[in-house]
Simulated assay, not measured.
Amino acid sequence: MNSMSMGSITWIVILGIIGLLIVLFFAFVPVGLWVSSLAANVRISIFNMIGMRLRRVKPAKIVMPLIKARKAGLDLGVNQLEAHYLAGGNVDNVVNALIASERAGIELEFEKAAAIDLAGRNVLEAVKMSVNPKVIETANVSAVAKDGIELLVKARVTVRANLERLVGGAGEATVLARIGEGIVTTVGSSLSHKEVLENPDDISKRVLSKGLDSGTAFEILSIDIADIDVGRNVGAQLQSLQAEADKNIAQAKAEERRAMAVAKEQEMRAYVVEAEAEVPKAMAYALREGKLGVMDYYELQNLKADTDMREMIGGQTPEHTVIE
């Protein structure tokens, strides 16, 4: 009885181990994916899929895009897709871009598409933009004509992706900056803002002729002026500011001249006071030397007193005082 129970336990353990091995086999080996590839007539060996597992590559990320590519008539290999996956690329996006370009008649090789994807650009969106151009609208660009009137110009730019320049080409920001520079240059070279308002298409023609898409990832198809608004009279404002500055300079110079005149006047007054201070000394010397008599001195005092009285009657403050 004991031997029979031991044998049953042994068989149960063996069956459990076999079942576990089967579960692990189907979990590690993508049998379902292998069957799908066979049904799609895409020959990938089961050992190749096991190798993907060992290389830490998800087989579904390689097999499903490969099936899609083969059904679309693209001749892609497993090693190409796996190498792009290991490099950090989006395999499914690259395959979709190749299918879209093949349907649109655009020549795009796998190596080029993989390089665009690894460069950080969306290769599928680039192919779509090559087929269906994108419209970019600029913000209001402020430009001043030669007559001093400011114009606010808004433009719509139709661009198409250039697949040959996607790697290393400048983006939308560069295109918008160049267009803004072209608008400022064109308006600034106009004699009057009225010329720009009458012929807004001149801006488009001049800007488009400058080849602003050079070195960018886009090809500019057209530039259309969406709106032009008249802004400030910058010339008048500058003239007003210049006049105000000239007035301040003139006032400063006038104040400087006035201060110099006041200083000169005070200096002259000082000379007068100094000279008047010498008068009593001179008169005293004349009296001592006998050159001035007493009667002459009193007559001079009377004359000064009469002069002071006349000035007081005239409403003026006497400038001379009686010499003692």
Rank of each mutant, 00 (worst) to 15 (best):
S214P: 01
I220Y: 05
S214H: 14
D229W: 13
G168L: 10
E219L: 11
K146A: 01
E164T: 13
R232S: 15
N162R: 01
G231W: 03
E198G: 04
S189G: 11
P200Y: 06
L208T: 10
S214Y: 15
D229F: 08
H193D: 11
A170Q: 10
V184F: 09
T174A: 13
R206W: 10
E164P: 01
V184T: 12
E181P: 00
A173Q: 04
K194R: 11
R165F: 06
S214E: 15
L191N: 13
T216E: 09
G188C: 09
L238F: 03
G188R: 14
I223E: 10
D147W: 06
G231Y: 03
A145Y: 00
A226D: 07
D201M: 02
L197A: 05
N233Q: 15
A173C: 03
E181I: 11
E198R: 15
V234Q: 06
L166G: 05
S189A: 14
H193G: 10
G211T: 07
S192V: 02
E181K: 15
T186R: 01
G168F: 06
V153C: 09
I220V: 05
H193A: 13
I228E: 05
R178P: 04
V234N: 08
V153H: 11
F218Y: 05
A226G: 01
V187I: 12
R178S: 02
G169T: 10
H193P: 04
E219A: 06
D147M: 09
K194Y: 12
S189H: 12
R178I: 00
A217Y: 04
A217S: 12
T174Y: 08
L176F: 06
L191D: 14
R206M: 14
K210H: 11
H193Q: 10
E150M: 12
E172L: 00
L152I: 07
D229C: 03
P200R: 08
G180C: 12
G235A: 10
V157R: 07
A161R: 07
L166E: 09
P200K: 06
G171I: 02
I183T: 00
A145I: 08
I149E: 04
F218A: 03
G211H: 11
S214R: 15
G231L: 00
K205L: 09
T185Q: 13
V167W: 15
I183S: 00
G235S: 12
N162Q: 01
I220D: 01
R206N: 14
N199Q: 12
E198P: 00
D224I: 07
S209I: 01
D147L: 05
A145H: 05
A173W: 06
S222T: 12
V167T: 14
S222H: 10
E172M: 04
E172F: 06
